[in-house]
Design a protein around this nucleic acid. Structure first.
Lengths: 245, 245
DNA sequence: CTCAGGTATTTGTATATATATGTATATACG
DNA sequence: CGTATATACATATATATACAAATACCTGAG
């Protein structure tokens, strides 16, 4: 069944527990002796796993005391999800953004379903346009339950993208994307300065921290100008307004 | 008798055993020493066979541990890449397909670059439209190096999708997708029966088996009718014709 | 009470051994 | 040149054992 080297499985187990926040920063994790017991391996195998995790920056160890979780750097599994501001700057271009809306709403049926919360419960909403060399490249419409981040509305999102702000408060662990090609909505036409006939890429993204659903965002890109690169599998899914029968 | 090279016979024997489920995913297969015994050959011959099977994605090896059948879930996310025919049938709809083109070509600059092969080398090309209840839902244009699957052109792709055919001959291990929203090409307009102003989802997919790049395909979907669901991260990437400076 | 010293706990490190794969070289054959 | 063999050495995983070093805790002397 399990074919990978034992020490790698142990590494996985521990780093998973840290990502899931079963161990918080500063927590003491089990001793080598306890892990030997738990995994039925020799101490040197456990030691190899822990030394690796120290090397990778997950843990810090003190002889006589134990092994402790180090504060998580940018080393979240979503390191692969690049921040749009960083991407733009890496291309050597100027990044700016405009906050078009930032307010509190009662959850509509759609938003409530996406976030898995009761209808009409309080949600925060933001609408931001991201610009590369003054040219709008992404329209970001985001919703999150008010209880998730009570000070969301006080943030200045021209300085820090909502995604950055979320990452600082939650160890984001998984995402789901649904990608569609659509004609631009009125919003998109206005703020991305698009013609009505230009196709747009619309990405609906939900973000989890462990089991907790944190945020729902709709990202709209001018389709002829940007591509989305994925490292994973895609499966075809019929849209709601599909009339096939 | 059989005068194929010994190492190929060994490859065949092992990959057959995997296909026959004599070894399940994650199972440990015999060590080189044991196979040397069994086939009465030198270790280097066994080693050549096993290295090939690793390259083709069937096996994964660890020094000191052994050789294991590549597991489907943990390390190959492609279990989630659904076959379009199966997806349609799971929705209780009728699946059909039409082969619009099936031929051999010299690799164009674009195709050669995508497949990482020399310019003008021989490639197979197929153009297939997939239909759900008679309605075209995907246009699949596919290229692969002729050396990868010499009998590709002899297949009946109304019975078996190219992807199915590939999976039977290679343990597909990774994919890369680039997703764009575009207006339909002439091909797409003709075969998907779309209006010129309807946005399309265009998915460029490259498929690997281990380290080997197997195939390049462009899948076009009517954007208002289908969505693509992804379970992974996406990063924005500028397209070639981006004029920002 | 403080302090020195012993003890238990925990990690750090080193060595040896067994196993299995990774790689390189030389040779031979058709 | 590709196939196949023979040999040799390197590398990676895992176990077992031993001892060193850092820390915390307890205890008895003063």
């Amino acid at each position: 069944m399990n074919h990978r080297p034992r020490y790698q499985q142990i590494k996985q187990f521990i780093s998973d527990a840290i990502r899931n926040q079963q161990y918080a920063a500063g927590d003491k994790i089990p001793t080598e002796a306890e892990l030997v017991e738990q995994f039925s391996v020799s101490r040197m195998t456990v030691n190899k796993a822990l030394r690796d995790l120290v090397q990778e920056g997950w843990l810090i160890r003190y002889p006589g005391l134990g092994t402790f979780v180090t504060p998580p750097k940018a080393e979240s599994p979503l390191a692969e999800v690049r921040n749009i501001a960083e991407e733009v700057r890496e291309r050597g271009h100027q990044y700016t953004s405009q906050v078009l809306a930032l307010n509190e709403q009662a959850a509509s049926e759609f938003v409530a379903m996406q976030l898995g919360i009761p209808l009409h419960s309080r949600v925060f909403h933001s609408l931001i346009v991201h610009l590369e060399n003054q040219l709008p490249i992404q329209l970001e419409e985001r919703y999150l339950a008010a209880s998730v981040l009570p000070h969301y509305l006080q943030q200045d999102f021209t300085q820090k993208t909502p995604n950055q702000y979320l990452s600082e408060h939650y160890a984001l662990s998984s995402m789901e994307h649904i990608v569609e090609a659509v004609l631009p909505s009125q919003h998109a036409k206005d703020y991305l300065k698009l013609d009505a006939h230009l196709p747009c890429l619309q990405v609906s993204r939900r973000t989890w921290s462990g089991e907790r659903l944190i945020s729902f965002a709709v990202l709209t890109h001018p389709g002829d100008r940007y591509k989305l690169r994925s490292v994973m599998s895609l499966t075809v899914q019929p849209s709601e307004n599909l009339a096939l029968r």
